[in-house]
């Protein structure tokens, strides 16, 4: 029995994408793009409190140039696809990395959000597809007629159906959990040096940013359900 390797054969190393670090850097960059979209989307959505005229005008402004809109949409779609592809490949690799599991295993030091990223991610994806079908395409619009261009009406009519509002609130909470871990994780994957105190501060910051963003989003279906927005 030797302590060295039995045979040493050298070959070309796995490149950037093949390495787990490279995949995580791709996930960090695409995650950052998607996070910026989530912030911008929230700021636009909050205009609903300014009344139907300004909200519909904002929606029309987004559509002022079809090709520009599709350039932005393409960036988002590519980001989503890369983010999912990297996550799926890492998930498969991680499954293979522990073929025999533990009989007992604690989860000290791991936040609930960090351990459920592989759950929150796919559910948020399903939510995004549903969301696009409902408010962008108008294919799913139970309880009322979808009117293209009258975004204010569509939102209010959509959220008046209780189960749609409940599904939005649930999915947005999962998005919040995904961001709570993701926001800190992207800095770590990108390689931001941090002391232990700064690490805790960044995690707190990520938590508060997620709470504020998700609070803003959730306020809209709640306002519709409580009759604040009619």
């Amino acid at each position: 029995m030797s302590t060295g390797a039995a045979t040493i054969s050298k070959h070309q190393a796995p490149g950037f994408w093949k390495s787990t670090n490279g995949k995580k850097i791709v996930m960090a960059v695409t995650g950052c793009i998607l996070f910026l979209f989530v912030v911008a989307h929230l700021l636009g959505n909050l205009l609903i409190y300014a009344g139907p005229a300004r909200y519909n005008a904002y929606a029309a402004f987004l559509h002022f140039d079809g090709s520009l809109l599709w350039i932005i949409r393409s960036v988002l779609i590519v980001s989503v696809l890369l983010h999912i592809e990297a996550a799926a490949q890492l998930w498969l690799r991680n499954k293979r990395a522990r073929p025999v599991g533990y009989a007992r295993k604690n989860s000290d030091g791991a936040s609930y959000a960090s351990r459920t990223m592989y759950w929150s991610g796919p559910i948020v994806l399903a939510f995004i597809i549903f969301h696009l079908l409902e408010f962008t395409g108008g294919f799913i619009h139970p309880g009322s007629q979808f009117i293209a261009g009258n975004v204010y009406h569509n939102v209010v009519a959509g959220f008046s159906v209780w189960w749609i509002a409940a599904w939005y609130i649930f999915a947005l909470c999962l998005l919040g959990m995904h961001l709570r871990h993701g926001l800190w994780s992207m800095l770590q994957s990108f390689g931001l040096p941090h002391s232990r105190t700064r690490e805790l501060a960044l995690k707190q910051l990520a938590l508060w940013i997620s709470i504020i963003i998700i609070g803003g989003y959730i306020s809209i279906p709640i306002s519709v359900l409580t009759g604040l927005i009619k």
């Binding site: 787990t20 890492l90 989860s107 030091g109 871990h181 994780s185």
Partner: peptide
């Protein structure tokens, strides 16, 4: 070099969970 060798071995990838440093 070290990242390449780590990726070559059947280890999983880091998802910044933090149980390593805890244990």
């Amino acid at each position: 070099n070290m990242v390449a060798q780590m990726s070559e071995e059947p280890f999983g990838g880091c998802t910044n969970i933090g149980q390593c440093t805890e244990s």
